[in-house]
Nucleic acid binder design. Sequence first.
DNA 1: CTGAAAGCGCTTACAG
DNA 2: CTGAAAGCGCTTACAG
Lengths: 329, 329
Amino acid sequence: LERITIRDVAKEAGVGIGTVSRALNGGVIKKETREKILKAVKKLGYAPNWYARILAGGKTRRVMLITPEIRTEFHWRVIKSFDEYLDQLDFETVIYPIISENRIAKIRSGSCITEEVDAVVLCTLTLNNVFGSEYEPIKPMVLLETAQENYDSIDLDNTLGGEMAAKILLSHEAKDFFVLHTREKDPFRISQSISARLEGFRSGLKKAGICLSPQNILHSEIFSGPSHDQIVQIFEKYRNPAIFALIDNFALPILDIASSLKKIPGKDFFLVGYDDQTWTEEAGLTTIHQPIEEMGIQAAQLVVQKLQNPGLSAQQIRLAPKPVIRNTA
Amino acid sequence: LERITIRDVAKEAGVGIGTVSRALNGGVIKKETREKILKAVKKLGYAPNWYARILAGGKTRRVMLITPEIRTEFHWRVIKSFDEYLDQLDFETVIYPIISENRIAKIRSGSCITEEVDAVVLCTLTLNNVFGSEYEPIKPMVLLETAQENYDSIDLDNTLGGEMAAKILLSHEAKDFFVLHTREKDPFRISQSISARLEGFRSGLKKAGICLSPQNILHSEIFSGPSHDQIVQIFEKYRNPAIFALIDNFALPILDIASSLKKIPGKDFFLVGYDDQTWTEEAGLTTIHQPIEEMGIQAAQLVVQKLQNPGLSAQQIRLAPKPVIRNTA
DNA sequence: CTGAAAGCGCTTACAG
DNA sequence: CTGAAAGCGCTTACAG
């Protein structure tokens, strides 16, 4: 099986190889020539050799998305929308999950795929997390779900989201407030966003003169969620508890257990989630909506803009959460 | 900043560039020359350019792992162990999740990263799924969690696992058997393994003269799990129900609800999961253990073997599940 | 607007 | 054992 090269395309189209290259990379070219070449490309099924292209100083049309997490619905949807948008513009996205420490080391040593992309987007991660403190970026970089001075970024006002949750929960006759929080060891996997939600919630309560007690913050593993015993205790000890789940997931066991206990949501207890995940509508969960797909798409747009115009000064886009009132509060 | 090339090293060491290349890639070379070159490399801080190396016919030392799912604990752990093993051998693994259909199209068109790796491993996916029916592989290919004639593969005997679950559940005084199953629309995301577990379970029951009724198979979304109502109904209608969760996740709401209902696991109901996920031990869930990390590592080993010796005939490795008896059955 | 040519930094037969 | 040379498949000034 012989590899089809730019030379074959040039011959098929009856032009020089430089012209083919220009047609493919958006250089100045007559429209007809361009079409002739594109036809030849299609006919032969030509695909460029990235190594040659890069070695010769060209662009990869690849964007790397570095993320600490790939198991949550949030990340799945962000990544999916990001990828689909860029795909239409004929970019490829290389997903690089930090599943182990060694993957950070690899990035820092510069011996990995990072080197073969035109731009990098950092999702839920700070520059410091990934590159260490002394680092100056050599290629376009966009932050997703975080923000930092002088960098393009797209994120959501999670503090505001936390305040919204507080407001909703305060509108009922609840005296006891609880937060379902994550527990993380890996420093780079601790989410600033989630902390911001908590802070927003805390300050929202404070404005109403309520102080959130540390022991009312229940930590649990992100994928197993709060334990049965913790939840049952809340229902046993407190009348009309008000619970803020920092991620929708954590609300699921609450709903299950409350239901078996014949506790009526929105009456015997109050519950607000965060994210507006797909299953929450059917479950009737009141939650704080994040426009997840929009975040992915806007991040992609920032990347494309930066690639087209590297001199552009940094844009920091901050979206707003929206409360979605359903049955649980 | 000028890049240091093999040419600089050659000059510094007073040899030709071909000799430098040989010294670096383990070709035949006089010991002293080699040392001279290594000294020059160190002095200049030379690092090879991968693009040039690969373009000139070298290897990428990259392996692509194609997977339909990245959100489950199973996939996370398989990928992690695979990646860590290969990392030690100085390989890089490129994770390529099929988050959208367009990613399959990209692979088939040959216009994506697939082309820039030394080998491919297909996880939970058949060749047909990914490449379509008429396809002949051009590079080493390993199957993980699936198997196919003439291909290297590593998988687990899920049918046996299903039978084990049946055996455990049959050892109690249960008359009514239930299965918690997934619901999938995307054809390429339907897992053969999970179906095999069901078949094993079914045949295990049949041997005891019990026929699994289709209406006792409850389907639900993989990340929201079986609904509260479905579970409560089981507990209300049946005495001592025996439940097989095709994935450990699905057992979690059962445990929560049963507990609120004061049903004692292993006495009032029987429950067996599948996977032996990390949280199950603490939860006391009886389950069928899969050696997940081992699967990842063995897949990596198959890849390395195949790369070293492409002529090797296909190896099909099939691991056995192990029952882990805890409190729930 | 386009072709011919130089060059990116390496590997690998090919002679010696 | 080693050097000189061809070539991997592209991009991009440089002339026209």
